[in-house]
Simulated assay, not measured.
Amino acid sequence: MHIELEDFFKRGLWVKTRSGETGAKKKYAMIDEEKNIKIRGFETVRRDWCDLARNTQDKILRLILNEGNEKKALLYLKDIIEKLKSRKISKKEIMIKSQLKKPIEEYKSLTPHVVAAKKLVEKGIPFEPFTRIEYYIAEKNTKSKLVRDRVKLSDEVGEYDLNYYLEKQIIPSVENIFEVFEIDVKELIDGKKQENLKKWF
């Protein structure tokens, strides 16, 4: 058997599976002696996350992996949530960047990024496959519960949907990380200090 040494890492984080019993395959983060982080399976590699979600996850991983300080990481997340709820986060940070890999007419499902592309065409903006699309999810102004009905382009007026960005972007990008420390970050959303969070604040 031949074993190849890939690199030296001073600290690593292996995310649990949904059953909570073993480390998830290809879902881990490690930091080397040069402070470079190697990530596999986390949301930073997905195109449908806004910069705020990606940057929050990256900062939290660095606080845990580089400093070994999960309490500081949790306080950082708490601050981000409070800023988002008080709308101190700019619209630029919550823009979702995506692209279509084929012509619009070939898409049968109206997903948010397809809706955004159609909006560009309606504005007379030339659109081709792999053109960069930027949009955000606005607050509900209709009875529809569909996310696609709340898609707005960057130049369209509106307030971003706080619940969407908290529950579908920020929390999902970091909750698996904190589960390693038996912390349920969803409890931070309502601003209450639940029993299992008291020791952290």
Rank of each mutant, 00 (worst) to 15 (best):
D190P: 05
S173H: 08
N163C: 09
N163E: 14
Y164H: 15
Y160N: 02
D190R: 09
L188T: 00
D190M: 12
E175R: 03
D184F: 00
L162E: 04
Q194R: 13
I171V: 09
Y160H: 10
E187N: 14
N163T: 11
E159I: 08
F181W: 11
F178K: 06
K168N: 15
K168T: 13
P172G: 10
Y165L: 10
Y164F: 15
E187V: 04
L162M: 08
G158S: 12
V180H: 10
E175P: 01
D184E: 05
Q194V: 05
Q169N: 14
S173V: 07
L162A: 01
L188K: 00
I177F: 05
E179H: 15
G158N: 08
E159S: 12
D184Q: 03
Y160G: 05
Y164D: 06
K192C: 11
G191K: 12
E182T: 04
I177V: 13
F181K: 10
S173I: 07
I183M: 10
I177D: 01
E187W: 05
L166V: 03
I171W: 01
Y160M: 04
P172F: 09
F181R: 12
G158H: 07
D161V: 03
G191W: 06
L162Y: 04
E175W: 02
V174E: 00
E167H: 02
V185R: 08
N176F: 07
E179F: 13
I171K: 05
Y160S: 06
F181L: 13
P172M: 10
K186L: 00
V157M: 07
E159Q: 10
Y165R: 09
V174S: 00
K193A: 08
Y164Q: 08
E159C: 05
D161Y: 06
E175Y: 03
D161E: 09
V185G: 04
F178N: 06
V157W: 04
Y164L: 09
I171A: 02
D161Q: 05
Q169E: 14
I171S: 02
K168C: 14
K193F: 11
K192H: 14
E179C: 13
